[in-house]
Nucleic acid binder design. Structure first.
Lengths: 341, 341
DNA sequence: ACCCTTGCTTCCAACGTTATACAAGACGGA
DNA sequence: TCCGTCTTGTATAACGTTGGAAGCAAGGGT
């Protein structure tokens, strides 16, 4: 049997609203009354019903996070960070994954669990700008991830072009010249890996190295198996890169496995740089050099964006494009194993 | 501006309840009325307010999942499976992680987001039986994971003892005799890794192999770094196992990294078996032999347990102990690399 | 023609909470 | 003494939804 404000009020001999006032720490309550009510609350074990409170106040205290795939450690780690960041603002996280399907991404933007959420953090892969423009739900939406849209929603993402250039710069500094980009996908200019590919091109161009388009290797997806298949295809086609810049760590890991099977040494024959800084990359036989986006910052900024827009009662403040930091983690896949270690 | 049943009713020229009836697919509504209402719904873009519905019906359509750590791929993959299983029953998943802290686990059982959830799936690590017994919240609770409690809650977990025995059996069949167990923790008989340790002991005993307690190696946590530290300590103590059965894949991966650094070959010098079948284990330089719990089944059974108890209007049906299947995935860390592959 | 049934719709109340308006008393200043 | 102001508590009305009862036609049996 549930105990409500009414029960507490009856038990304490005051009105329902007075109990509500005590619960909500309303200022003007005599200490005597307050204590009397508190005693009744403790005696009955009263817990507020958040659903009713939310119906009344119009807020649920829940924000949704929609990522492509929880099985991808990057998104899992990010989800963990979002849960923590949300908790800091007394929000809880409702989770969904879109499996990288445009349809599911669309569904999520059109009102994930209709009205139970105060805001939505979405990492789109396939969604197009017109899909987002057609959105009717009015809960604040924050976009994260590499894709960019020219739309009135906050967007949180590291500077992907600069990050990619840093990775390629590192490989160039090591003397590599035939640097493959592993992770192209589709022909659209807005393909998900667009920016990192641009960074690859830009840094090569800036260094006067001819970008060999044959070294832009496509993948079918973003997982280890896709990286393995993509790398195998590249090698089967007769190409011999001396370095690989992978779209993400999973692809890099799959590629390294294939190289290991074929007797290619990392980094002696082929240096590898990934992207995401998964914990996984720090424990392989060859630890992975990678670009580390600041996941905590991404999560924190995304949550704060929603909290602020909710507090701001509507369109206060212009759309923001925030760029958390990143760092290049130099490890064995480019430097080789340190003898001292 | 939000549109409610009232708005739709006014627009369609019928009562609020009739609109509600249409929305809920109530049988006795004339096709004409139904269509008229439907048109109004479409015109106004009405979406039901789940908070209000919940207040009235007592259900939210949300189940919570609390796991120790989302950064652990096992839990991330499991969370993904739970999201999918829940979606099959029109439920959405609210996520939290407990960081393996007893306090946070306790908080979660005592009414995660007070009353907004219909049920809770919890994977406890540190929680004690008395904590669970003291629980006041009456939403259905399903436990998953290795730890067992003699309490009236459904529990979904593979047969950990049998699974551990299978793993050890595999190592024995390969001729290994000095098999370490890497992943003991604390002295409590109810320590989290209890059952797998029991399985290790049982299978050794059944095979007439003396269990060397010096080969039961402790770890500080469940991640790769803990496995690395535990393995290093074991080796530093002068022990030379010819096989390692690790509590989970992450520990096994950490241990393999340490062995690689020290020039020990896997599996020639030391064979390794893990537990969880993380995708990660399939792409290392040495792929990992591991026990694969049926994660889809665990997720499905956990969700179904909650759905059934909610449908059953209270204590219908006795407490269940369900054991989804598992399989031993034999890979390079015990078999060596196949030349053909 | 009457009543009874059946089918559809409406009205009302309730879920537990908080906002608003207001009442009752206390207090200080003129 | 009286009036305004401040403090504290109460009564009532919402928030959006659904369950149950009641209303109201139309149709069939007698």
């Amino acid at each position: 049997m549930r105990v409500s404000l009414k029960d507490v009020a009856a038990h304490a001999g005051v009105s329902v609203k007075t109990v509500s006032n005590v619960v909500n720490k309303y200022q003007h309550v005599t200490p005597a009354t307050r204590e009397k009510v508190q005693r009744a609350i403790d005696a009955l074990g009263y817990r507020p019903n958040l659903t009713a409170r939310h119906l009344r106040k119009g807020r649920t205290g829940i924000i949704a996070l929609a990522v492509p795939e929880l099985g991808n450690p990057y998104f899992a780690e990010l989800a963990g960070a979002v849960v923590d960041a949300a908790a800091a603002h007394d929000y809880t996280v409702l989770l969904d994954h879109t499996q990288g399907s445009r349809e599911r991404e669309l569904l999520v933007t059109q009102g994930f669990r209709a009205r139970v959420i105060d805001g939505l953090i979405l990492n789109p892969l396939e969604l197009e700008a017109e899909d987002l423009a057609a959105r009717t739900d009015d809960a604040p939406l924050v976009l994260i991830g590499e894709r960019r849209y020219d739309l009135p929603h906050d967007h949180i993402a590291i500077d992907n072009i600069a990050a990619a250039r840093t990775a390629v710069r590192h490989l160039l500094d090591l003397g590599r010249r035939r640097i493959a980009f592993l992770g192209a996908r589709g022909d659209r200019p807005s393909q998900p890996s667009h920016l990192r590919l641009l960074g690859w091109q830009a840094e090569l161009a800036a260094s006067g190295v001819t970008a060999d388009e044959a070294l832009v290797a496509p993948v079918e997806g973003w997982d280890r198996a896709d990286g393995a298949a993509g790398m195998a295809a590249l090698l089967d086609a007769g190409h011999r890169p001396d370095a690989v810049f992978a779209y993400n760590d999973l692809i890099a890991i799959g590629a390294m496995r294939v190289m290991s099977e074929r007797g290619l040494r990392v980094p002696e024959d082929v240096a590898v740089v990934g992207f995401d800084d998964l914990t996984e990359g720090r424990y392989g036989a060859v630890t992975l050099t990678t670009v580390a986006p600041d996941k905590q910052a991404i999560a924190r900024l995304a949550v704060e964006s929603i909290v602020e827009r909710l507090a701001g009662e509507g369109g206060v403040g212009a759309t923001r494009r925030l760029h958390p930091g990143f760092a290049l983690m130099e490890r064995e896949s480019t430097l080789g194993r340190r003898p001292a270690n």
